[in-house]
């Protein structure tokens, strides 16, 4: 058991040093999201609200709208990483040959990579959060609220990873999966409430989304952080269900893909 855990730990460490290998890259990764947020979302919404920052748009005044968006940013940093991106590369370029030879499985390697990425993102998202507080976009919520919000976001991160894993595995058939991933991320951005809060969408759509994973990937955790949402169980249950579905499908795809795999380019 101990030797097995050591394999995970060392993989986490090595992924960590891969992510931080390029200093400038890393620096941009840390401060970039906040800058992008500031230039796009802040400017967009301040021109929408104009002078009258007190007016309500679907129940949000300007400050609340900004708070909502800071939280969705923090959530996406923390829970919607791109750790599974390397996975499809590995398949496409035939690099899984190496993993098939190691006494450490492919999924184990990539899951460890994901965990490592999560640890790194705690740091990145804290910087973003710190900057947002420093520039007066929001006040730090109570410890309890933060704890609830972060646990849920982490849980969502696992779901996101299993879904990303799914798109990655499609590389067995598609050879290029980036277009799939771009489409998925656009759909997710819209339906999860990352681009607009779900209150801006028609009623029928929002209630239809309730049993899909989407609202729980941005809107729901943002509301937890803002102290509005307190019924967490629904979110956990829906995500757990979808996570199980994707994990099962991934398992099947992997088995089928392996039979198909001819180690092209080895």
């Amino acid at each position: 058991m101990k030797t097995y855990l050591l394999k995970w730990w060392q993989t986490i460490r090595i992924s960590w040093s891969k992510y931080t290998a390029y200093r400038l890259n890393f620096f941009l990764q840390v401060v970039g999201p906040f800058l992008v947020f500031f230039f796009i979302k802040y400017n967009l919404w301040s021109s929408i609200y104009g002078e009258d920052t007190g007016q309500l748009i679907r129940g949000y005044n300007f400050d609340e709208m900004m708070q909502y968006h800071v939280w969705t940013l923090v959530i996406s940093l923390l829970g919607q990483g791109y750790a599974a991106m390397n996975l499809s590369e590995d398949i496409r370029l035939g690099r899984i040959s190496s993993y098939l030879i190691y006494p450490f499985e492919f999924w184990e390697f990539h899951t460890a990579g994901f965990l490592s990425f999560q640890i790194l993102q705690i740091f990145v998202s804290s910087v973003t959060l710190g900057l947002a507080i420093f520039f007066g976009f929001l006040d730090l919520p109570s410890t309890m609220t933060l704890l609830h919000g972060f646990s849920f976001t982490f849980f969502m991160g696992f779901f996101w990873f299993t879904m990303q894993y799914f798109t990655g595995l499609l590389a067995f058939w598609l050879e290029e999966t980036w277009i799939m991933r771009v489409l998925l991320s656009i759909v997710v951005s819209f339906l999860s409430g990352y681009i607009f809060p779900l209150e801006l969408y028609p009623e029928w759509l929002v209630s239809g989304l309730k049993f899909t994973p989407f609202p729980y990937m941005s809107y729901f955790p943002a509301k937890i952080f803002m102290g509005v949402e307190t019924n967490f169980m629904m979110g956990y249950a829906v995500l757990a269900f979808w996570m199980a579905v994707f994990a099962f499908v991934n398992h099947l795809i992997w088995k089928k893909g392996m039979r198909l795999y001819t180690a092209a380019g080895m």
Binding site: K7, W9, Q10, T11, Y102, F104
Partner: peptide, 8 residues
């Protein structure tokens, strides 16, 4: 070092 752990 990673391989050291992989191969125990």
């Amino acid at each position: 070092l990673l391989l050291q752990k992989f191969y125990e």
